[in-house]
Design a protein around this nucleic acid. Structure first.
Lengths: 216, 216
DNA sequence: ACAAAAGTGTTCGACTTACACCCATGG
DNA sequence: CCATGGGTGTAAGTCGAACACTTTTGT
């Protein structure tokens, strides 16, 4: 093993979106175009450039590898498992991001977090070990939650996101009260019908909450 | 700014000890021997070697810069503030460590967390922003707590550590119940007298708790 | 009418905080 | 006897989880 006083740092991004049709929070993966693990599915990852900020690198990774922009992003954890990369990479910073609505590259695929296929490197390990953090962020981390929900969303989406991230059906009563306690989040006047069932309220983020928390 | 696909990663260690005489948890700093910031006080920090684990690097930093060993250590956060280092370092991983009883280098000094002097780099910022994490670890993170207390400790030490980390006097009744709920921690038979006042119990870590959590 | 979806009310236990009060020792 | 430090008991407040029940829609 080499012992140079410098390390390659990779930034790997768990890029999410809410799929309103399937009612699922989905993770973006793409087939690697370069060695190692060429052709295998992987999280968008990139090598941090000298002097580059983590947020910038994450955005670069999502843009280059997936072809989409980012509505919000933030740090998750650091992995320093040895031999996670055959080339000798050592440190990897896991970040979350929420994709904007842009059309991704054709080879990008999206999977529910419960159904992620085999990935390159230790990316499966990264997904499983950060899942709890993502779940904890929902309705607590405003930047994360706002990015995932968009400026307004029906109750059905709130239920689906919670189920999709936590893995089990939330109690609707408790979820409703939770939403009421989220700062900057208000019940709208409109009602949203969803096939059958009682129409639900449309939740709306306050303007100032929308303005804050820029992408960087 | 250079844009090479490789970054220097520094590991900076908040090295603590419990000073039984002054009843304070203290932080180790030392005067830097090299540029930049030569002569200024700083946390022990080191550049991560390629393929090196964070824990190993932290241990190396503490040993080389302070001359002491480590009874326990763990991660805190990652800082990626740009220009935190004039040389162009970018990423810094903050770790906690508890020093063993070895005699440190002569120029090492220890300060209570409330009274840390001006430090090089953004190390003051690092100390203030990780303080809450350290406080949260006490009595919760077993590796941290055991390392700081040693195999057994009197009630007075528990009170002092809590006050020293949290910044305010704990309620002794609540602290006592908290100690009782810490797994692996038991009240010993011995009593410890402390000048004046009623003698306090000696708390003892269970053997298996002592065995687990190796330094790495 | 019935199933599906949304919303309200209530309770329980875990945990934190605060505070009142008793106990044991040294000076 | 009293200041100092140690220890027990109790009550309020917060929070999450669980559950019963009502309301409003489509089929």
């Amino acid at each position: 093993m080499e012992r140079r006083p410098s390390s390659n740092v990779s930034v790997d991004v768990l890029t999410l979106r809410y799929n309103a049709t399937d009612r699922e929070v989905e993770l973006a993966v793409y087939p690697r175009a370069t060695e190692p693990y060429i052709g295998q599915l992987a999280l968008p990852g990139i090598t941090l450039l000298e002097g580059e900020r983590l947020a910038d690198a994450a955005q670069r990774a999502v843009h280059e590898k997936l072809g989409v922009g980012v509505r919000g992003l933030g740090p998750l954890t650091v992995f320093d498992e040895p031999s996670r990369d055959p080339r000798g990479f050592t440190l990897s910073v896991a970040m979350w991001a929420v994709a904007d609505g842009a059309e991704p590259h054709a080879d990008v695929s999206w999977y529910p977090l419960d159904d992620v296929p085999a990935l390159a490197f230790d990316h499966n390990q990264m997904v499983t070990s950060t899942r709890q953090m993502l779940t904890d962020k929902l309705w607590r981390d405003l930047a994360f939650t706002r990015a995932l929900t968009g400026p307004e969303f029906p109750v059905s989406a709130a239920v689906a996101m919670t189920r999709s991230l936590s893995g089990s059906d939330p109690d609707r009563g408790n979820l409703n009260r939770r939403l009421q306690s989220v700062p900057g989040l208000n019940v709208g006047h409109k009602r949203v019908v969803l096939g059958r069932g009682r129409p639900g309220a449309l939740w709306v983020w306050a303007e100032d909450a929308v303005a804050q928390e820029p992408v960087a």
